[in-house]
Design a binder for these strands. Structure first.
Lengths: 144, 144
DNA sequence: ATCGTTGCAAAGGCTTTGCAACCTG
DNA sequence: CAGGTTGCAAAGCCTTTGCAACGAT
């Protein structure tokens, strides 16, 4: 089986492919969602691939630093992570009442507009933009 | 002196205008920035309007719930707050290296585009959108 | 064999909470 | 005067860290 993209990234950064590390990335591959450290920890337990919670934190941080994961924040007091290379680039809708998070993507013209914004801002502030996140907050269909 | 807008909001929600509460909002009025609870606490000390840190937290939360403040997150592990009704609506650029945050506004076409997005998303997900936030991450001019 | 990585438990940082005293409307 | 609000200290949560044992290259 050929290396997956993220394994190349590990090698390129001289990072070892340990059992826990591999298992953690696989949780995200099988679970295309924004998981908290505790979520990941739980998923690993279910698969009998237990890793200490400290290991989970250390790896989420490391994988974020080298660009395999993204850190997102929904205002619930903990960090969440998701794979950077999802099939489709997306953003989030967060319910202010129940905390539910909806991923959305493919709104017509959005990516073009974001490119326009990035170009304008990087020029205006001499800022090298590497990523962006858009959040909409409100009430979901159940909470309205 | 006529009531300021936020004082009406307090009254409307049956919330008392206490000394600490007033002082906290004034910190934001004089300091149009994204402050953490600790920042606010410090500013109050400087003005000899000390309030316990718990009071600061409780009020930041309350003021956020009734819409006078907005909660923003820059990935530094603590919440930051800013006045909702700034003279100009704005978003943030966050430096991944030094953590510096730049407020920006008035990029041509941005507000029109966001309205378009909101309309589309609220229809698609039956979601009542109340606010939004856009973050760009990258390297500031000093860190590049 | 080397040096990164792991687990555990302890420590740390931010935020929330219980409770009695206090203050606003 | 009633009920919201405050201060203080303790407790709660999420996250990080020290250190010895372990494991990938």
């Amino acid at each position: 089986m050929p290396d997956r993209e993220w394994q190349k990234t590990l090698r390129k950064n001289n990072i070892k492919l340990t059992t826990s590390r591999k298992a953690i990335v696989e949780v995200f591959e099988d679970n295309r969602k924004h998981l908290s450290a505790e979520d990941v920890h739980e998923f690993l337990k279910k698969r009998n691939q237990k890793a200490g919670i400290a290991t989970v934190y250390r790896n989420l941080d490391l994988l974020t630093r080298i660009g395999i994961l993204h850190r997102v924040n929904f205002g619930d007091g903990k960090d969440h992570f998701e794979m950077t290379h999802k099939p489709i680039h997306h953003h989030h809708l967060v319910c202010n009442k129940c905390g539910k998070v909806i991923d959305y993507s493919e709104v017509m013209g959005e990516s073009e507009f974001v490119s326009h914004l990035e170009k304008e801002l990087s020029k205006r502030y001499e800022f090298k933009i590497e990523s962006h996140q858009i959040y909409f907050y409100g009430l979901c269909n159940k909470c309205r």
